[in-house]
């Protein structure tokens, strides 16, 4: 299966998936056929625990909709992804906040996407 298809299938099943390099152990995201850290093609899929920290955040306020956050999240396994923090006012999302992933089945292109909530544990 191709890396992109593997990722989207796992996402549709509710999983935050990433690859790990068998040789240098780097966490790899976005999905690839090789490890960008060492060039190895020996990658193994894994499931993230979904816990991470907000690395940066920007709030957009469309004229015709509710404000939303676009955030970069550093997952504890060692990779970063663009996402959004929901369940709280977008303007309250702070860099350094601990967050927990949930997979939302519907976005505007009718695909699953990973979102994050503040982690209160």
């Amino acid at each position: 299966m191709t890396p992109h298809r593997e990722y989207t299938d796992r996402l549709a099943a509710g999983e935050v998936a990433f690859q790990r390099c068998d040789d240098c152990r780097a966490a790899v995201f976005q999905p690839r056929v090789l490890c960008p850290a060492c060039g190895s093609t020996r990658l193994t899929w894994g499931q993230s625990a979904g816990l991470g920290t907000v690395y940066s955040v920007s709030v957009l306020s469309p004229r015709d909709g509710r404000p939303y956050s676009v955030a970069l999240i550093d997952l504890d396994e060692g990779f970063r992804m663009m996402s959004t923090v929901v369940g709280m006012p977008a303007g309250d999302v702070r860099i350094g906040m601990r967050v927990r992933a949930q997979v939302d089945q519907v976005d505007q292109v009718d695909q699953a996407r990973v979102e994050f909530l503040a982690d209160r544990s």
């Binding site: 992109h4 940066s56 920007s58 992804m81 663009m82 996402s83 350094g96 505007q108 292109v109 996407r113």
Partner: peptide
């Protein structure tokens, strides 16, 4: 494509630079 960002509706290019600005401020 593939895009691992489009689903989050960043307004590009400005949001990319905004994320850098926010981090520099922090």
């Amino acid at each position: 494509l593939p895009s691992y960002e489009a689903a989050y509706r960043p307004r590009m290019p400005v949001t990319g630079y905004a994320l850098a600005a926010a981090r520099h401020m922090y």
